[in-house]
Amino acid sequence: MNDRDGNNILIVWYDGGCPLCLREIALMRRLDRARRIRFVDLTDPSQPCPLDRQLMLDRFHTRKGQVSYEGAAAFAAMWRAIPALRPLGELARLPPVLWALEMTYRHFLRVRPTIQRWLT
């Protein structure tokens, strides 16, 4: 998918059944004033899903053109698409930073169900 200038749009797949995810995506939508991101709710069965739906619900995924990202790298790609967050996304390109973000994300995935229960 391309925008009117021919630049690739970042596709972000998210869990629309997760209250925490919905809050994050709402914030990203507000920050994405240039509409560089297309958000796809994986809980909507009418939405296309390039991989196993459960796999994508279990771990954050994005794609820009032919390049796919998952986990912390997917968050960094989303940040780079939003001017206010771009410096953070660029910092995450550094291998030690991305590694630390990925370890943090993996820990978050273990506690995510508990956080979700608190938010409902």
Results as ranks from 00 to 15, higher is better:
residue 3 D to Q: 02
residue 3 D to W: 00
residue 4 R to F: 11
residue 5 D to V: 01
residue 6 G to D: 05
residue 7 N to S: 04
residue 8 N to A: 13
residue 10 L to V: 02
residue 11 I to L: 11
residue 11 I to P: 00
residue 12 V to H: 02
residue 13 W to I: 10
residue 13 W to K: 08
residue 14 Y to Q: 12
residue 15 D to N: 13
residue 16 G to H: 11
residue 17 G to W: 01
residue 17 G to R: 02
residue 17 G to L: 04
residue 18 C to W: 03
residue 18 C to S: 09
residue 19 P to N: 05
residue 20 L to A: 15
residue 20 L to M: 15
residue 21 C to M: 13
residue 21 C to W: 12
residue 21 C to R: 14
residue 22 L to T: 11
residue 23 R to V: 04
residue 29 R to H: 12
residue 30 R to Q: 15
residue 32 D to V: 02
residue 32 D to T: 02
residue 34 A to E: 12
residue 35 R to P: 05
residue 37 I to F: 07
residue 37 I to Y: 06
residue 38 R to K: 14
residue 38 R to C: 08
residue 39 F to G: 08
residue 39 F to W: 12
residue 40 V to S: 15
residue 41 D to E: 11
residue 41 D to Y: 10
residue 41 D to A: 10
residue 42 L to P: 07
residue 42 L to C: 08
residue 43 T to S: 14
residue 45 P to Q: 13
residue 46 S to T: 15
residue 48 P to K: 08
residue 49 C to I: 01
residue 51 L to I: 06
residue 53 R to T: 12
residue 54 Q to R: 13
residue 57 L to R: 07
residue 60 F to Y: 12
residue 61 H to R: 12
residue 62 T to F: 04
residue 62 T to W: 03
residue 62 T to D: 07
residue 63 R to S: 05
residue 64 K to P: 00
residue 65 G to Y: 01
residue 66 Q to C: 03
residue 68 S to T: 10
residue 68 S to D: 14
residue 68 S to Q: 15
residue 69 Y to R: 10
residue 70 E to R: 14
residue 71 G to R: 13
residue 72 A to F: 09
residue 73 A to T: 00
residue 73 A to K: 02
residue 74 A to Y: 10
residue 74 A to P: 15
residue 75 F to G: 07
residue 76 A to E: 07
residue 77 A to V: 01
residue 79 W to I: 05
residue 80 R to N: 02
residue 82 I to T: 04
residue 82 I to K: 08
residue 84 A to L: 15
residue 85 L to S: 00
residue 87 P to W: 03
residue 87 P to F: 03
residue 88 L to Q: 06
residue 90 E to G: 01
residue 91 L to H: 00
residue 93 R to A: 06
residue 94 L to C: 11
residue 95 P to V: 05
residue 97 V to L: 13
residue 98 L to Y: 04
residue 98 L to T: 07
residue 98 L to W: 08
residue 98 L to M: 13
residue 98 L to C: 15
residue 100 A to P: 03
residue 102 E to V: 02
residue 102 E to G: 05
residue 103 M to P: 00
residue 107 H to M: 10
residue 107 H to I: 08
residue 108 F to W: 11
residue 109 L to G: 06
residue 109 L to W: 08
residue 110 R to M: 10
residue 111 V to I: 15
residue 112 R to K: 14
residue 112 R to V: 09
residue 114 T to V: 13
residue 116 Q to V: 14
residue 116 Q to G: 08
residue 116 Q to I: 13
residue 116 Q to W: 03
residue 116 Q to Y: 01
residue 117 R to I: 02
residue 118 W to M: 13
residue 119 L to S: 01
residue 120 T to G: 07
